[in-house]
């Protein structure tokens, strides 16, 4: 997967590259070029080494769906998928993602064609203010995949067996995503629906 991603950035999106460079510093000892794909589009950036993946997405690539909450890995609003895994984009540097495949909320669905999890959040009222929602949705999709992949959790009774989708499992696995509006019961309902289970 890494090799494919690396090869694909050779044909980088030139408009994105040009745009990013207008807002990035000239290359010096404190900045580094980096290439990765975001939502399937190859991107080349020259970023100050201090730039987090979150800031690169929002400030350099203008993908503002991914939110900055605490900026310290405590709230989960910045959750994105990197090479198929959910991470906190605020606690990783953009330059550390050479060749990686990044999926943000913008890559999951569109207003006309919602991702099933997005539709489930709408149906079950899984948000109020909506600020944490992109991170909640990225995490929700990952949680179902993690359970299917046999990854155990703190509440899995027998860790030598695969976990079932239960409310308890969902709540434990979603604990890295905070919702100050307290939409948790409806978020659990949305995840249950997509996991094919009645809450």
């Amino acid at each position: 997967m890494m090799a494919t991603a690396a090869a694909s950035v050779v044909a980088a999106n030139s408009s994105a590259t040009t745009h990013a460079q207008t807002t990035s510093p000239v290359q010096d000892h404190a900045s580094t070029p980096v290439s990765f794909t975001v939502n399937g589009t190859p991107r080349e950036l020259l970023v100050d080494n201090r730039t987090t993946l979150l800031d690169a997405l929002r400030e350099n690539l203008h993908l503002t769906g991914t939110k900055k909450g605490c900026d310290h890995g405590q709230c989960g609003a910045c959750t994105v998928m990197v090479d198929g895994r959910r991470i906190n984009s605020c606690l990783t540097l953009a330059v550390m993602h050479e060749g990686d495949e990044i999926i943000t909320i913008e890559g999951l669905g569109t207003p006309e064609h919602l991702h099933p999890m997005q539709a489930a959040f709408v149906k079950h009222d899984g948000f109020q203010c909506g600020y944490c929602t992109p991170g909640q949705i990225c995490s929700s999709i990952a949680v179902i995949e993690e359970i299917k992949a046999g990854i155990p959790s703190h509440v899995t009774a027998d860790i030598t067996q695969n976990a079932e989708v239960t409310d308890l499992e969902i709540r434990e696995r979603m604990s890295g995503n905070i919702c100050r509006c307290g939409a948790y019961p409806n978020i659990v309902a949305a995840i249950n629906e997509i996991a094919g289970r009645q809450a």
């Binding site: 890995g73 989960g76 959750t79 895994r85 959910r86 991470i87 906190n88 606690l91 990783t92 995490s139 990952a142 949680v143 993690e146 155990p152 959790s153 703190h154 899995t156 860790i159 030598t160 696995r173 979603m174 604990s175 890295g176 995503n177």
Partner: peptide, 23 residues
């Protein structure tokens, strides 16, 4: 690790969040 060193799996899963453990 889950089978022979369950203590290690249990301790890891008790820490941090899913996102942090992935990194």
């Amino acid at each position: 690790v889950r089978k022979d060193y369950g203590l290690l799996s249990r301790a890891l899963l008790a820490g941090a969040s899913g996102q942090l453990r992935n990194k």
